[in-house]
Design a protein around this nucleic acid. Structure first.
Length: 591
RNA sequence: CGGGGAGUGGCGCAGCCAGGUAGCGCACCUGCUUUGGGAGCAGGGGGUCGGGAGUUCAAAUCUCCCCUCCCCGACCA
């Protein structure tokens, strides 16, 4: 179909890694001449990179259309008003690129388009008979990230496919959600991207289901747990802890609790050390005290949506930290902040370092929630609400009556899987897609209602679904490259064949030219290294760097009637007879 | 916003501590030789050293202020 001649291609490879690139995808995409930085977190696409991006777009588009979704296209430059209506003009804060027109009217560069889609559907859809509908766009999005990093993986301008489904009822939303889920699985499989579907938090948006498609990689910034035994996977924010099984410090037979003097033990470590030094406090089973036997109470300040504050105490095993991300995800839409010195001053009953259950509980004005491991019947050492004092043999349900449980402790590798009990792995990944049931938040904000079968107006329920398109280019590069360069899966590669003319002999040039023409005539895209000023060695290196899956070398073998064909990904090399090589390449690049 | 690192031809770096008017490799241009794993020789073009102020006879180098980039953290539908 096309011949891209490297002698004239607008392209340059770099011999050294760029100084400002760290992760493999960023380094290689710049070195191989696919992208260039234009501004922090903003990249220019060169011819080869643009081809890859368009291939990814094409695959995403084909899978969306196969699923019956319809493509639309919104502006990237958006008016303020719709975002004012949903509160996001303010909520987005500094992450929003804002600008003004000549009259001073406010605009923004769209970070996501829920508002616009909702308004468009309100304009077009007038009856339940028009539903369900799922529409999508592939659009450049803008977010003024505090810290763009890792090249395309986390930019301030990026290409995203976003879809929105509109249904008259919850069952419809579930069906639309499942349709997207299936389409996403097909899409990522075609892209050649490894992925894990993990349970995610849906936050304040309502709706029940929210899942992320993560591609595991060390450069990733999302942390998730995965069970190697049963396949359970969840973002750490959404992970649930396995119910505790009765263990050594079960308190069923415990003596009555008592308060003891424990000077200078404001930290768990100091407390454990002291407990182990004191013979009179030795444990009944004779084993040493550990942080896991202590009950740590962390107090945070919760800001409700009406602006009021309430203190909240969380009881955790002393060997666990509170994960603020997990807490924030569970408290949404309320916000949480750690307790400040000023907060402690307002609550003199909370003795920093010695906070115990005795001062906690809603009847005392401090809601008290405990980790699931702090289960009824277990016994603990905890603060006694006085400087240098702790209570031992505190049994949950006997001496302590929490207001409920909350699952916000840090998740650790090896924690039991909530589904099967096997030890969990912790991995890093990049969010490539997110599907979630948005519910009626936006439909309500814009009063999006249509008559249902019963003639009554019903507010539509929505789903929101995204795929990071430009991010996928980086993720594919990241997960498929090797020490020598990129290794594109065939469907996203910038060309079908990288044809190298290794030598200047007339016979070599002539044969290579003819082969390029023949391949193009058969509908293949050929990246043809016809440069006369590059040595064979340079051409081989560049071919490996650029990463087209099939590399064909017309060179010294021609004298023996053979052409070499290499598989960039497997490293396999085969010689084919000159009169057979065209057919072999056509067969190898058939789609 | 906190911590760390770094800004010197297109790219990667040295020079800075002990101030003296900019150097190396790659890339680029010309010529000859070479041609299957980032060729060789010869010649050549290109930077005023992130910006500003200051000290000094003299500043890439010393002092002060500012800006930017990278990494970690905070933050991030």
């Amino acid at each position: 179909m096309t011949i891209l001649r490297m002698s004239t291609l607008f392209h340059r490879t770099l011999r050294d890694d760029p100084n400002d690139a760290e992760v493999a995808s960023h380094r290689l995409l710049v070195r191989s001449g696919y992208i260039r930085r234009a501004a922090p977190g903003i990249y220019t696409w060169l011819p080869l990179g643009w081809r890859v991006l368009r291939n990814v777009e094409r695959i995403v588009r084909e899978e969306m259309e196969r699923a019956g979704f319809q493509e639309v296209h919104f502006p990237a430059l958006l008016p303020r008003e719709p975002y004012e209506a949903t509160g996001r003009w303010a909520d987005y804060g500094d992450n929003l690129f804002r600008l003004q027109d000549r009259r001073g009217a406010d605009y923004l560069l769209g970070p996501t388009h829920e508002e616009m889609f909702t308004l468009l559907v309100k304009d077009i859809v007038t009856s339940y008979k028009d539903l369900p509908v799922s529409i999508f766009q592939i659009q450049t999005k803008y977010r003024d990230e505090a810290r763009p990093r890792a090249g395309l993986l986390r930019g301030r301008e990026f290409v995203m496919k976003d879809s929105y489904s509109f249904d008259i009822d919850d069952d419809g939303l579930t069906r639309s959600y499942e349709a997207h889920r299936a389409a996403y699985i097909r899409t990522f499989e075609r892209l050649g991207l490894p992925f894990v579907v993990v349970a995610a938090t849906s936050g304040a948006m309502g709706g029940s289901a929210s899942e992320e498609f993560l591609t595991p990689m060390s450069a990733g910034e999302d942390t998730f747990v995965r069970c190697p035994s049963c396949g359970y996977a969840a973002n750490t924010e959404a992970a649930t802890s396995a119910a505790p099984h009765a263990d050594a410090h079960s308190g069923a037979e415990h003596p009555p609790s008592q308060v003891v003097n424990t000077p200078d033990t404001a930290t768990i470590a100091a407390l454990v050390e002291l407990l182990n030094e004191r013979d009179d406090l030795a444990r009944a089973d004779g084993r040493a005290w550990t942080a896991a036997h202590t009950l740590k109470n962390v107090v945070v300040s919760v800001r409700r949506t009406d602006g009021s504050f309430e203190p909240l105490a969380i009881g955790l095993p002393g060997d666990r930290e509170l994960d603020l991300h997990r807490l924030a995800a569970q408290m949404e839409p309320a916000e949480v902040a750690t307790f400040t010195d000023a907060d402690f001053t307002r609550h003199p009953e909370l003795v920093k370092g010695y906070i115990g259950p005795g001062a906690l509980g809603s009847e005392r004005g401090v809601r008290y929630l405990v980790d699931p491991r702090v289960a009824a019947g277990t016994a603990w050492v905890s603060g006694a609400d006085a400087e240098g004092r702790h209570a031992i043999d505190l049994v949950i349900g006997r001496d302590v009556h929490p207001d409920g449980t909350i699952d916000v402790a840090e998740v650790r590798a090896g924690d039991p899987c909530p589904a099967c009990g096997h030890g969990l792995d912790i991995e890093r990944g990049v969010e490539m897609g997110h599907i979630f049931q948005l519910g009626r938040k936006y439909a309500e904000a814009f009063d999006l209602k249509v008559p249902g079968p019963d003639g009554k107006l019903a507010t539509l329920t929505m789903g929101s679904y995204g795929i990071g398109v430009s991010r996928a280019v980086a993720a594919i590069a990241e997960t498929t490259s090797d020490d020598m360069g990129l290794r594109w899966p065939p469907e996203v590669a910038p060309a079908d064949v990288h044809l190298v003319a290794a030598g200047k002999d007339a016979a070599i040039v002539e044969f290579a030219e003819q082969l390029a023409a023949d391949l193009a005539a058969k509908g293949r895209t050929v990246l043809f290294d016809d440069r006369t000023d590059a040595s064979a060695g340079v051409k081989f290196r560049d071919a490996e760097l650029v990463g087209v899956p099939l590399i064909v070398i017309v060179g010294r073998g021609l004298a023996d009637g053979v052409v070499e064909v290499r598989d960039r990904r497997s490293g396999d090399r085969l010689d084919f007879a000159t009169d057979d090589v065209l057919a072999q390449i056509i067969a190898a690049t058939r789609r």
